[in-house]
Design a protein around this nucleic acid. Structure first.
Lengths: 115, 115
DNA sequence: ATCGTTTATCGCCGATGGACGATGACCGAA
DNA sequence: TTCGGTCATCGTCCATCGGCGATAAACGAT
């Protein structure tokens, strides 16, 4: 299912090719490291169609703030953006989200079996 | 300002939700959302005993910077700290690390099946 | 046409993060 | 003792984040 980036069993690891790209995973985790964005993700996944306004109604944040958070999530590749006529539609990219999770899982696995 | 996002400790509702605490997971992911800290985790897991100096030698960062990152990881509960006489010993808390991973996994799962 | 709604973006500001050097404390060795 | 090495913390600087209001653009409805 996931890419086999982690060496299994072997204790030799390449010096310059890390099992997980620290910068890549840190960037995506940064997009997730805000409670409002987690809430947004949960709400997006709970309803099929989400416009910005809908999220604004749920969270107690200004519209501009929510729009900013949505933009961060889109730029991180975790949320897909589809400009409807008037209302933008936002939807969780479940594949990308699962990929982040598996990346972190790979990091943890490599940290736990790294010795 | 963000009180309405999460009711901390409140167990009055969320009867079937898998209790994905947005603030808790965001905090721990924040500790992981920096490439230097990911690198530190990888180095800590690769060697059984790691003092601060050892990490400084590998990463191209000042000693004070590395010490700060280590402190952040310790405060997040991801790294255990054991003051030796002269050299502090840092070690990955593999259980805590696995817990973060499973928390994110739970969030992703709830986002993917949350409809 | 105007009005109302939704959205993205801009500017601003306070708070935080991340980097560094300098400093002092601690400890082992000479 | 002194010297060298290690470490945590302090202060400073700069960049970014996170919040808001205001604004303009786009669109539907009237």
């Amino acid at each position: 299912m996931t890419e086999s980036l982690v060496e299994a069993g072997g204790s030799c690891h390449a010096p310059e090719s890390p099992a997980v790209d620290s910068r890549a995973i840190a960037t995506r985790l940064a997009a997730l490291s805000h409670p409002a964005r987690i809430e947004i993700l949960k709400h997006l996944s709970a309803s099929n169609s989400c416009c910005c306004r809908e999220v604004v109604d749920r969270l107690d944040l200004a519209q501009s703030t929510v729009s900013q958070h949505l933009k961060i999530l889109v730029e991180a590749g975790l949320v897909r953006f589809e400009p409807d006529r008037q209302r933008s539609r936002y939807a969780v990219d479940r594949v990308a989200l699962a990929d982040v999770s598996s990346s972190l899982s790979a990091l943890v696995t490599s940290c736990c079996s790294g010795r």
